[in-house]
Design a protein around this nucleic acid. Structure first.
Lengths: 158, 158
DNA sequence: GAGCCATTACTCGGATAAAAGCTGTCCGAGTTGGTGCGG
DNA sequence: CCGCACCAACTCGGACAGCTTTTATCCGAGTAATGGCTC
């Protein structure tokens, strides 16, 4: 899995604590000492997916496009890592003896079915976790986290 | 995910229908018109993982190392694709402000925790499906499959 | 002094290289079965 | 005719290239604030 997924998730949590404010990729990257340009690329992907809104120029930056309760971890994974499943059935049964050339073995093949079922369980778990859920739990562990994050962003403005 | 996983799973199902017989990589590859040498590479990985036993020389080949009921789809994924999880936490929190350098953020980080939980659900599904389960279901769909497979192997002997 | 315009600085956005991992291939080590020779 | 040793063929096993995907970087397009100029 793409490493940018991790960065994107942490960045989204941080953005959830700066609502209404456009945060630049530079500041988001500085928070975890990440390469700015590459993080910017990931944030662009989130913007294309409709998770973030982007504004160019001075006073520009990124912010969450919708309520963090409506942004699931799955949304982020799909935006960064692509919509394809990890296991992709190549329908090798079509090359086997007694194969039905017009059959759709992505559905008929039992191995493909089992892998899809597992991946569905995975995606269901991820879809059930929102950025707001994570942020909420972080606050219960470290109540000062939101303010510390906002201060960190503010200090970098100088 | 590695494409060889699909090949390995189908090959294991086929091998479950030729118990006690050593089947060469060549014949297993011919079954689905796969590149022989590359499939051989995947079978080697299965042998290293203790899923298959390999014998060199004439009359040599591969066969299941244990009862197909004790070979899960997860075993095969781990053997081919490696034991690492798809999402690997790089502990970027350690570079953030107010980080505890001696903390293990692969456990403390809530994002890492959520991703691990999802992946655990994925692996649990895969661990619950054995090669015998798949083979059994294939038989209920196509009762002739085992014999057809054995015949196919036999015909290639010429 | 107020308003307008050009400039400037700063941001995102996509196009462009370097690196890593996956895919595919080839030749060597080892083993078994067959064959020829000797008893 | 029987036993033994050599030979040859076949298989797995690991080392070696080609290529796609990921990682990282750089420069250009666009935008808002700023400063200067004119009225």
């Amino acid at each position: 899995m793409n490493e940018g997924v991790e960065w994107a998730m942490h960045s989204c949590v941080n953005l959830s604590w700066a609502p209404g404010e456009a945060v630049t990729a530079k500041r988001l990257a500085a928070f975890y000492e990440l390469p700015t340009a590459y993080l910017n690329k990931q944030l662009q992907a989130l913007a294309r997916a409709g998770i973030l809104t982007s504004v160019s120029g001075p006073k520009g930056g990124f912010q969450l496009a919708r309520d963090p309760r409506n942004i699931s971890l799955l949304d982020i994974v799909v935006a960064i890592d692509g919509p394809d499943e990890a296991f992709r059935c190549t329908e090798i049964l079509k090359a086997g003896p007694g194969a039905d050339q017009k059959a759709d073995y992505t559905k008929a093949c039992l191995i493909s079915h089992a892998m899809r079922t597992a991946e569905l369980a995975y995606r269901r778990e991820l879809a059930g976790q929102s950025i707001a859920d994570i942020a909420e739990r972080v606050v219960s562990q470290s109540p000062d986290a939101p303010e510390n994050t906002r201060n960190h962003f503010a200090n970098l403005k100088s």
